[in-house]
Lab assay of single mutants.
Amino acid sequence: MLEGKVKWSNSEKGFGFIEVEGQDDVFVHFSAIQGEGFKTLEEGQAVSFEIVEGNRGPQAANVTKEA
């Protein structure tokens, strides 16, 4: 699992980007967020995730919010 911080997200469009130190930003779709209820990410929020190869390149999977 990698750790990063949410660079920005748009809940209306359903995606955002995660900033990882020393690496390119990672695309995240809201379907990759683990948990119940409305899935949102806040700018600056710490997250853990895996990287998978998506249709348009690397993207985050199994995203969990850190406490």
Rank of each mutant, 00 (worst) to 15 (best):
Q59T: 07
E12Y: 10
E36V: 10
K39N: 11
P58Y: 08
V28D: 04
H29I: 04
N62Y: 06
G57R: 05
S9G: 06
S48Y: 14
E3Q: 15
E43N: 13
V52C: 11
T40M: 10
G4V: 03
I18N: 00
F38H: 13
A46N: 13
S9N: 05
G44T: 03
A67Q: 12
L2C: 10
G37R: 05
Q45H: 07
E36K: 10
I33A: 05
M1S: 09
I18L: 07
G44I: 00
E50V: 13
E19D: 06
E43M: 14
E3F: 15
I33S: 03
F49G: 03
E12V: 13
Q34Y: 08
E19M: 12
F17V: 04
N55V: 14
L2V: 12
V47I: 06
G35Y: 05
E36I: 10
G35T: 08
F49I: 02
F38A: 13
D24R: 13
F38Y: 13
G37D: 10
E42M: 12
E12D: 11
K65N: 06
V6N: 00
M1Y: 11
I51Q: 04
E42G: 07
E53Q: 14
F49Y: 00
T64H: 14
G37L: 09
I51G: 02
V26I: 11
E12K: 13
L41C: 04
V28T: 03
G44R: 03
G22C: 09
V47R: 00
E12G: 09
V20M: 08
K39V: 09
S9C: 15
V47E: 01
E66L: 15
Q59H: 08
V20D: 00
G22L: 04
I33Q: 03
G14S: 11
E66R: 15
Q59I: 10
R56F: 13
S9D: 02
A32I: 03
E43F: 13
T40V: 12
P58C: 08
A32S: 10
T40G: 08
K39L: 11
G14V: 05
K5C: 13
K5D: 00
V63S: 02
F38C: 15
Q59E: 12
E21C: 14
R56H: 11
K65E: 05
G54H: 06
D25M: 05
G35N: 07
A60L: 01
G37P: 07
N62I: 05
G4D: 01
F38M: 13
A61W: 07
G44W: 04
Q23S: 10
N62M: 08
V26Q: 01
F17C: 07
E42F: 12
Q23E: 08
V6D: 01
W8Q: 02
G54A: 06
A32N: 09
L41R: 00
V63E: 02
I33L: 13
K65R: 11
A61D: 05
K13A: 09
G37E: 09
L41P: 01
K39D: 10
G14P: 03
V26E: 00
G54R: 06
A32C: 08
R56N: 10
V20E: 00
E36M: 10
A32K: 06
N55H: 14
H29W: 10
G16E: 00
R56Q: 09
T40R: 08
Q45Y: 06
N62A: 05
G14N: 10
Q23L: 12
G54T: 13
S31T: 09
G57Y: 04
I51L: 11
Q45E: 13
F27N: 04
F27W: 06
A46W: 15
K7T: 03
N10M: 05
V26R: 01
S48N: 09
A61Q: 09
I33E: 05
K65D: 03
G44Y: 04
D24M: 12
S48V: 13
E36G: 11
E21W: 12
E12M: 11
N55Q: 13
Q45W: 10
G35V: 06
G22A: 05
E50G: 03
Q45D: 15
R56K: 11
N10A: 05
A67V: 13
S9V: 15
A46Y: 15
G37C: 11
D25A: 04
A32Q: 11
E12C: 15
D25T: 03
I51R: 05
T64R: 15
N55M: 14
N55S: 14
D24C: 14
V28K: 00
K39I: 10
A60I: 03
N55W: 14
K5R: 13
Q34M: 13
P58I: 09
R56M: 09
K39C: 12
T40F: 13
P58V: 08
N10H: 08
A67L: 13
E21I: 12
E12P: 06
K7F: 03
E53C: 15
I18F: 02
L2M: 11
V6M: 06
A61L: 07
F38G: 10
E36R: 08
K39H: 11
G4P: 01
T40H: 11
H29G: 05
V20I: 11
F27E: 04
G22F: 05
L2H: 10
S48H: 13
A61K: 10
S48Q: 13
G54V: 04
I18K: 00
I33V: 11
E66W: 11
V6G: 01
G35S: 08
K7C: 13
G35A: 07
Q23C: 12
V6P: 02
G16P: 02
N10F: 07
T40C: 15
F38N: 12
V26T: 03
G37W: 08
G54L: 06
E42P: 08
K13P: 03
Q34S: 11
D24V: 11
P58Q: 07
S31A: 06
N62R: 10
A67D: 12
T64K: 14
V6R: 00
G22E: 05
F27I: 01
M1C: 14
K5L: 08
D24Q: 12
E53S: 10
Q23K: 11
E43I: 15
K13Q: 08
L41D: 01
G37A: 08
K13R: 11
E50Y: 13
Q34F: 09
L2D: 02
K13N: 05
N62P: 01
Q34N: 13
G44P: 00
Q23N: 09
F30I: 09
R56G: 07
V47P: 01
V20F: 04
V20S: 05
G57M: 03
N55K: 14
Q23P: 03
S11H: 14
E3H: 15
W8D: 02
W8E: 02
E21Q: 11
E66G: 14
A61Y: 07
G54Q: 04
F27S: 01
S11V: 14
Q34G: 08
V6Y: 00
V28G: 04
Q59P: 04
T64W: 13
E42V: 13
E12Q: 12
T40E: 09
F38K: 13
A60V: 02
V52P: 00
A67I: 13
V52Y: 08
E19G: 09
S9R: 11
E12S: 12
G22W: 05
E43R: 15
E66F: 14
K5A: 03
S31Y: 05
V47L: 05
F17K: 02
G44L: 01
D24H: 10
S48A: 08
A61N: 07
R56T: 07
V52M: 08
